[in-house]
């Protein structure tokens, strides 16, 4: 248990995850980028002592990438399991990150696994795998507006129970920064205050807002001896915007917090 990834709970999500797992229910996690979805799943996998298979979905991801395919080895064809099949065989957690990025015909292979049948038919080998009780399917996506052209099929979506994540409250986010990087409380407060100022700009001036992950990056730089305003510029300003005038305004917010 000493390798348990750090995770700061902000509600009943740990309890809900455990209940879902005990009762063989698949889980959907939604929330903005960098708010701790992936970390949460890693934490839970470690806590439940299950192997974790993570797949980052993209629009070229095919069903074969998940299930597996034949490979040619020394003149023979050899079946090679995909991450989903491996997770089913071993009774682990299969985590599909950013599942809306995958095409609809790909996500359909999840259907028989995500309802009470809990089976994975493999067309190419004719095998039908039944998932052991410890297997769990977890998917996540970011409902930001850049995904409006995508979105999930309702028939896929309704097979999951859903957990909504958002950026943690200021106090929790400070605790995360301190827990993750060991910076002092004053610094954590200031960083979180900057992040919340930037979050007020969501949709109007910035497409994406400062995530907890970026806050951690900034804290790591400062912990390493980097001058705070410099670290914040590198972690926030240049990451969040390409527009020079917006960048000037963001720098002003940082200067207003740390002083000159």
């Amino acid at each position: 248990m000493e390798n348990l990834p750090f995770y700061q709970s902000h509600g009943s999500e740990i309890e809900l995850f455990e209940r879902a797992w005990r009762n063989n229910l698949p889980l959907l996690i939604k929330g903005p980028t960098g708010c701790g979805k992936t970390r949460f799943v890693a934490h839970m996998a470690a806590q439940l002592n299950l192997p974790l298979y993570t797949v980052a979905c993209h629009d070229d991801l095919t069903a074969a990438d998940l299930v597996g395919r034949h490979l040619i080895v020394d003149g023979q064809t050899v079946w090679s399991d995909g991450p989903l099949t491996r997770a089913v065989r071993e009774g682990g957690i299969c985590y599909l990150d950013e599942v809306v990025e995958a095409r609809k015909d790909t996500t359909v292979v999840l259907h028989p696994l995500a309802d009470d049948r809990r089976i994975l038919p493999i067309d190419r080998t004719g095998e039908i795998l039944a998932a052991p009780p410890s297997f769990m399917l977890v998917v996540s996506y970011n409902p930001g507006y850049q995904n409006f052209l995508k979105g999930m099929k309702p028939s896929t979506r309704q097979r999951f129970i859903s957990l909504a994540f958002d950026f943690p409250s200021a106090a929790q986010e400070e605790a995360i920064l301190i827990g993750e990087t060991g910076i002092d409380e004053m610094l954590a407060k200031r960083l979180v205050s900057i992040a919340n100022a930037f979050r007020a700009l969501r949709d109007h001036d910035l497409e994406e807002v400062a995530s907890t992950r970026l806050l951690v990056y900034a804290a790591i730089l400062i912990k390493d001896g980097c001058e705070p305003t410099l670290a914040c510029r590198a972690a926030f300003v240049e990451t969040l915007t390409d527009d020079p005038e917006t960048a000037v305004a963001l720098r002003e917010v940082i200067d207003a917090t740390f002083g000159l």
């Binding site: 007020a200 700009l201 109007h204 001036d205 005038e245 002003e252 917010v253």
Partner: peptide
């Protein structure tokens, strides 16, 4: 004006 407007919103002003 652009800098000031963004600064205003970042500090919690009405967008």
């Amino acid at each position: 004006s652009k800098t000031a407007a963004i600064f205003f919103r970042a500090l919690g002003g009405d967008a």
